[in-house]
């Protein structure tokens, strides 16, 4: 369930990031600390954007950096980083990112339920407003819990 992955320890707020690489590194920190991913996975996520372009920006302002399980995932995980100031993934307007959700899939299947719930959550404009306006983690946790069934 989504709330098992996005919780107190995996939600972060930051004012800004120097560039998109820094943003991905910061966003991935909780998963690295919990040893759910290895440093190689972080490098793979960055390389993936370098090779394929800013495709991880799935909607204006929202990026879901990820790489393949074999790049260095120990355990399925997600971590959320909200920035106050957008960081550019390209010069395009829609690639100015304020919300990053790092996705660590351990295989092709186990993350799908949570990903489906995340997808539902991100499809609603008002939920995004809640995330962008949140002043504490609790507000995001409440939202995530609502979508975890």
């Amino acid at each position: 369930m989504l709330k098992d992955l996005i919780h107190e320890e995996t939600i972060q707020f930051a004012s800004h990031a120097t560039d998109w690489k820094e943003a991905i590194k910061t966003a991935a920190k909780p998963l690295l600390t919990n040893e759910q991913i290895t440093p190689a996975y972080v490098d793979a996520m960055i390389r993936s954007v370098e090779e394929l372009g800013p495709y991880v920006v799935i909607a204006p302002g929202i990026a879901i950096p990820h790489a393949r399980p074999e790049a260095g995932v120990n355990e399925v995980g997600m971590s959320l980083l909200r920035l106050d100031e957008a960081v550019p993934f390209s010069e395009k307007e829609k690639h100015q990112v304020k919300l990053l959700i790092v996705l660590a899939a351990a295989d092709q299947e186990t993350h799908l339920e949570a990903l489906a719930q995340l997808s539902e959550l991100l499809s609603e404009e008002e939920n995004l407003a809640t995330i962008y306006g949140a002043t504490n983690k609790e507000e995001i946790i409440n939202l995530v819990t609502k979508y975890s069934n």
Binding site: L52, H66, A105, L115, A116, S119, S123
Partner: peptide
């Protein structure tokens, strides 16, 4: 790009 993330989210939609 990887067939793990966004493509699944879009498939559901």
């Amino acid at each position: 790009g990887n067939g793990l993330g966004s493509s699944f989210m879009v498939e559901m939609n």
